[in-house]
Every structure is written in structure tokens, then in C-alpha cells.
Design a protein around this nucleic acid. Structure first.
Length: 635
DNA sequence: TTAGGGTTAG
């Protein structure tokens, strides 16, 4: 080492490290450090390693080269490098963090400390390597860190992420040691309790990952103190498992208990709000973020864009999208998917071009949105082009969802054999959804031959699902083969297959009201019933005749017509009409596809009552106004 | 230097 150089340049370069804001500046700094021989200064070199390894513009490969040239390795530099590898996503995987840790303990020159283990364990979690994780557990005990809460949390998380809930359970029970202790800790040991909240959160998350929401909720209920993360875990557990009402209830309960939602809470609850079409609540969440200085970044932004789109306000979705600080592939997918859902195929394609021009590469999900846009607008050639482009040029492997869009697109254009061939020649297994799409198209084009074949496969794939029976029966009904309809009905009865209950939601003054077919459980059921009668009367005055083809049950025409009036979306609209001021728009969300009778009724209702009515069905939006629908009866 | 999150056919 050139001591003269060191004397002339004391380690005054250390503060300058923080001035490096880009990789270029970082490399220039490195050159300077080498040139002035200060690379031999251990504290400077380790600081520099930290910069390469953990800053926003980190470069794992560069960090490794700096690490390998260090004059001396200490615990800090090992920890820094292990952490960088554990978090890396490039050629160096998290497993390399484990190997470096192994080298560290094999060399025996430097002892690992309590900061070493969280990173190594995180690496094992990310690589899902239980065996390596267990070895690290051994070292944790040997080094005496098995009472450190940070180490314990990561150890528990490692078992959870490696799928070993048994090991996680043992470790958790040993640390929490029963309810009584949890109670005592509330009073006497706040620090310890905070550690336990985190351990509980990790454990709850583990149950959720296993799909055991019940166990997760049980543990959550048992906790004497919960952090905002505990609530967030439960909210996202419900939202991701389709229990949307429960997610929203938990969100409300959290606030009643005085816990303030944070950015992650909003990101977790918004998908549930979207699915239920609860626009008012969604708007509230948006306002909450703005009022509380919660940054609307790309992550929260895509949840908001999706919420506004799914709640029927695509213009607002566009507005939010345009004001986001940056757009990544998910924000683009959210807006393109939203436009597709609203039948605005040309806009979806425009945004797709913009996305490509902005340098963000489309993903497989982007193509699902694009193909779905083409299918909703009947753009057969464009759809074919994008599908082929995705497969041939981008080398993306088509997923069942892509094939699903294509089958829908071709099927609705009447190209039933081509759609059927596509399913039969896929490299992946077909599912019930794709055969239902084909069967739906067969009904539309009154093609019994392909319809029968599709139904046959569907009945094998999902024998207890009413879908195949209902769709085939509807196909028979469409061609007027009532004998076959009756036969289907009997078959369903024999096999005890029931039609999925239709369910609709409407949000009035921020409260969500749920209705099922023939629902009379609502507190205002009487008023709703008389409104339904009024609607029915006014519809018949307008010349509307109930389309009873899709009612499967064996009853006379009058009974069938009466059942049609009690479809959940009609009940929801009736309730909307009596609960809102005249001319206020109504927004209804339905779990199934809207039936043809409801579709034609809604067109007339929008005219009779002078209301904009938006119905989001399982597949897309219908905007009814002045007696017509935005889907132009093509859906 | 511990826990939680956004888009996806019908």
C-alpha cells in the first residue's frame, strides 16, 4: 500500500460516495478510488461495496468484483454481499447467497452475526430450498441467535415459503408458547410483543398461502394486538380468494378499531372493491390516498385504474392512468384490459401502440387484454394477427386464456369448426371455460352438431357444473327443439345438477346490496316487489314480450315470465330505481352473463325511466341509455 | 437490520 498517497488523501472520499446517483457516476468514482490507490482503504472499499450492492442502481456483478478485490473481508462486507445476492434477480440467484454464507462459515475467519442470518434465510425462502434453510437453522442455534426476533421472523418465513407449515408451526408454538404468555407479554414486554405480532403475521400469511383462510382468520382473531400489516394480510387473503364482501368488511372493521389504512391496505382492498363494482368506496379510497399523502405510484395506480374501469367509469380510469408518474407493464395491462372490457377495442389498440412506443414490452397478460378487445368488437383478422405475432415473433407460449379469447372471437364470427380445431390442436389441456365459450357460440349460431360435441367434453370435464347442461339446453331452445330441452332438464334432475344462482350487487350511498334470484330477504322487499310489478307492466305497454327460451324449468309460459322478472339484476335495478333520485344513473354488477330477456328489458327500462343503466356481467360492460346498449347487442 | 400489495379468457 502506498502510505504516502493515503496521507495525502485521507478517507475524505467516503462522504463523496453518497453523491453517486447513477451507475456511471459510481464507476467513475471507482476509477478515481483505484487511481488514487485508496481502493486499499478498507473502510472506503466496504462503503463502496455497500453502494454497488444495495443502492437503487445496484449491480450485483459489479458488487461481486468489488467484493472479491477487497483487501480484507469482514462481517459487514460479507453481510452486504450476501444480502445483495439474496435480493438479486439477475444471473446471480438467491442460492448464491447461501453458497457465499457457506464459504464464510467454512473459512472460519469471520463469524456470522445477527445481521447475516436474515439475509441467508431470505435467500433460502426465495429459492424455496428447505434443505439449505434447515442447515442455516442449525447454524442459527449454534451461533446462539435463536432468540433474536429478526432472525426468528426470517426463519419462520423460510419454513412458510418453503411450504413446510409443520416446521413453521413447531417453531411458532415454541416462540409464542400459548395464549397466556401472549397476554402477559401485552402487559410486560412491548418489545417482545411487537416481535410476536410479526411472527403471527408471517404465520397467518403461511396459512393463506396454503389456502387455509379459516386457520388464518382463527389466528388473526386470537391476536391481542394487531398491526396494520396483520389487517392487510387478512384483507388480501379474502380478496385473493374471492371473498370480496369479507375483504371489505375487514377493511371497515380495521378502521372501526382505530387502525389507519396505509398504501398496502388500499392496494389490497381495491381488487375486492373492483370485483363488487363498489364505485363510491373505491372513490373514497382514492380520496383517502390523496388526503393522507399516500403516493399514487404505479402499484396503487394500477389498482385504481382497474377499480375505475371495473366500476364502470372508464373515463376516470383513463384520467388516473394519464396522471401516474410512471407506467409499467401492469399499469398498461390495467388500462388496456379496462378499455377491452368496455368494448372500446380501437382505444385499447391505440394504448397498446403507445405502450410499445414507450419502450415497455407487452407481457402475456397484455395479449390477453388485446385479444379480449378484438373478441368483444368482432375484429377477427386483427385478433388472428396479434395471436400469431405473439407466438411467432415474441415467442410467447399461448396460455389457455389466449386460446379462450381466440375461440370466443372465432366462435362468435360463426367460424365454429375453426374454433373447435383450435381447441383440439392446443399444446395444453383444455378446460371447462374454453368449451363453454365454444358452446355459447354454437347457441348463438344455432349449431347443434358442434354444440353437442362441445357439451359432451364439457360434461366430462366438469360433471357437476350446470354450465354444459344449461348451455346445451339453451342451444336446443334456440332451434326450438323442446323435446331435447325437456330431456336435458330430466338429466339434470337425475344427476342433481342445479343452475348456479345468479347474484347481483348495487351500491347505494356507499353500502353494497346483494340480490339473488327471487330474492325477498331485503328489508325493503315489499317496495322492491311493487316496483318490479310496475316495471313489468310498463315493459308490456312498450310491447316487450318476455323471452322465455332461456328458462329451463318445466313450467307454463306465465310462470316462466314471472321467474324472468325476478332475475337478480332486475331486482337490483328495481331497488336502484326506488332508492335514488330521478334520472340518477344506476350501476349493477352481476356474477353471471346477463340473459337475453334482461338485456332487452334493460334497454327499455333505460328509456322508460330515463336512466343510464350500467350492468357489468361476468364478461363485460353493458351501458344502457335511451333504449339501446353500448354492446350493440353483440356480446 | 423482520411481516403485507397491483394487471390475467367466459
Amino acid at each position: 500500500m502506498n502510505s504516502a498517497t493515503l496521507n495525502i488523501h485521507p478517507p475524505s472520499l467516503v462522504p463523496r460516495i453518497s453523491h453517486c446517483k447513477t451507475i456511471r457516476e459510481m464507476k467513475q468514482f471507482h476509477a478515481l478510488v483505484i487511481k488514487t490507490a485508496q481502493i486499499h482503504d478498507l473502510s472506503l472499499a466496504t462503503e463502496f461495496l455497500k453502494l454497488c450492492a444495495t443502492s437503487d442502481y445496484r449491480d450485483t456483478e459489479y458488487a461481486l468484483s468489488v467484493f472479491s478485490q477487497l483487501p480484507e473481508r469482514n462481517c459487514f462486507s460479507y453481510n452486504t454481499m450476501i444480502r445483495a445476492l439474496a435480493e438479486s434477480d439477475d444471473d446471480y440467484g438467491p442460492l448464491d447467497a447461501f453458497f457465499l454464507f457457506y464459504q464464510m462459515v467454512s473459512d472460519g475467519i469471520v463469524e456470522p452475526n445477527r445481521f447475516t442470518f436474515p439475509s441467508v434465510l431470505k435467500a433460502c425462502s426465495r429459492a424455496a430450498r428447505l434443505e439449505e434453510g434447515k442447515q442455516v437453522h442449525g447454524f442459527v442455534i449454534k451461533c446462539g441467535f435463536d432468540s433474536d426476533e429478526f432472525v426468528m421472523t426470517n426463519l419462520l418465513r423460510m419454513y412458510v415459503m418453503c411450504g413446510s407449515m409443520e416446521d413453521a408451526q413447531i417453531l411458532f408454538t415454541r416462540n409464542i408458547d400459548g395464549d397466556e404468555d401472549m397476554n402477559r407479554m401485552v402487559t410486560y414486554n412491548k418489545r417482545k410483543l411487537e416481535g410476536n405480532v410479526v411472527l403471527c403475521n408471517v404465520m397467518i400469511d403461511g396459512y393463506v398461502r396454503l389456502g387455509n383462510i379459516k386457520a388464518a382468520a382463527e389466528l388473526f382473531d386470537k391476536m391481542h394486538q394487531r398491526s396494520v400489516v396483520s389487517w392487510n394480510v387478512m384483507i388480501s387473503a379474502y380478496a385473493q380468494n374471492g371473498v370480496f364482501m369479507k375483504a371489505i368488511e375487514t377493511f371497515h372493521k380495521m378502521q372501526m378499531e382505530g387502525v389507519s389504512p396505509n398504501r398496502v391496505t388500499l392496494v389490497s382492498v381495491l381488487p375486492a372493491i373492483s370485483r363488487l363494482g363498489a364505485l363510491e368506496l373505491g372513490k373514497w379510497g382514492h380520496l383517502y390516498a390523496e388526503k393522507n399523502n399516500i403516493p399514487i405510484d404505479d402499484v396503487l395506480g394500477s389498482a385504481l385504474v382497474d377499480m375505475y374501469a371495473k366500476c364502470g367509469t372508464i373515463e376516470k380510469a383513463i384520467q388516473v392512468f394519464e396522471t401516474l408518474p410512471k407506467h409499467n407493464v401492469i399499469t398498461w395491462n390495467a388500462i388496456i384490459g379496462g378499455l377491452a372490457m368496455h368494448g372500446r377495442a380501437n382505444d385499447a389498440l391505440k394504448y397498446f401502440s403507445r405502450m410499445e412506443r414507450s419502450g415497455v414490452s407487452p407481457s402475456d397478460v397484455t395479449y390477453i387484454a388485446i385479444l379480449s378487445a378484438c373478441s368483444h368488437a368482432g375484429l377477427v383478422d386483427k385478433g388472428r394477427y396479434f395471436f400469431n405475432h405473439m407466438v411467432d415473433k415474441l415467442r410467447l407460449e399461448p396460455r389457455i386464456e389466449h386460446y379462450g379469447c381466440m375461440v370466443d372471437l372465432l366462435g362468435r364470427a360463426g367460424l365454429l369448426e375453426e374454433a373447435e380445431d383450435l381447441i383440439l390442436n392446443m399444446n395444453i389441456r383444455s378446460d371447462d371455460v374454453i368449451w363453454k365459450a365454444l358452446l355459447g357460440a354454437c347457441k348463438m349460431h344455432k349449431n347443434i352438431e358442434v354444440g353437442r360435441r362441445a357439451a359432451k367434453v364439457l360434461m366430462q370435464l366438469a360433471p357437476h357444473d350446470s354450465g354444459a347442461y344449461v348451455a346445451l339446453s339453451n342451444t336446443y331452445a334456440a332451434v326450438g327443439d323442446w323435446g331435447a330441452v325437456a330431456e336435458m332438464r330430466l338429466k339434470m334432475k337425475d344427476l342433481d345438477i342445479r343452475k348456479d344462482p345468479g347474484c347481483s350487487w348495487i351500491e347505494i350511498d356507499g353500502a353494497i346490496h346483494e340480490f339473488v334470484v327471487e330474492d325477498d330477504s331485503h328489508p325493503r322487499a315489499r317496495e322492491i316487489h311493487s316496483m318490479l310489478k310496475e316495471i313489468s307492466h310498463k315493459l308490456s305497454l312498450e310491447g316487450h314480450r318476455p323471452d322465455t327460451k332461456q328458462v329451463l324449468l318445466n313450467m307454463d309460459e306465465e310462470q316462466k315470465a314471472s321467474l324472468l322478472h325476478y332475475h337478480s339484476e332486475k331486482i337490483a335495478v328495481a331497488f336502484g330505481l326506488i332508492s335514488t333520485s330521478p334520472k340518477a344513473p344506476l350501476k349493477v354488477v352481476k356474477n353471471l352473463r346477463i340473459c337475453e330477456d334482461c338485456h332487452s328489458s334493460m334497454k327499455l327500462i333505460s328509456k322508460i325511466y330515463e336512466r343510464k343503466i350500467t350492468i357489468r356481467d361476468r364478461k363485460r360492460f353493458h351501458h344502457f341509455e335511451h333504449g339501446s346498449c353500448s354492446c350493440m347487442d353483440y356480446w
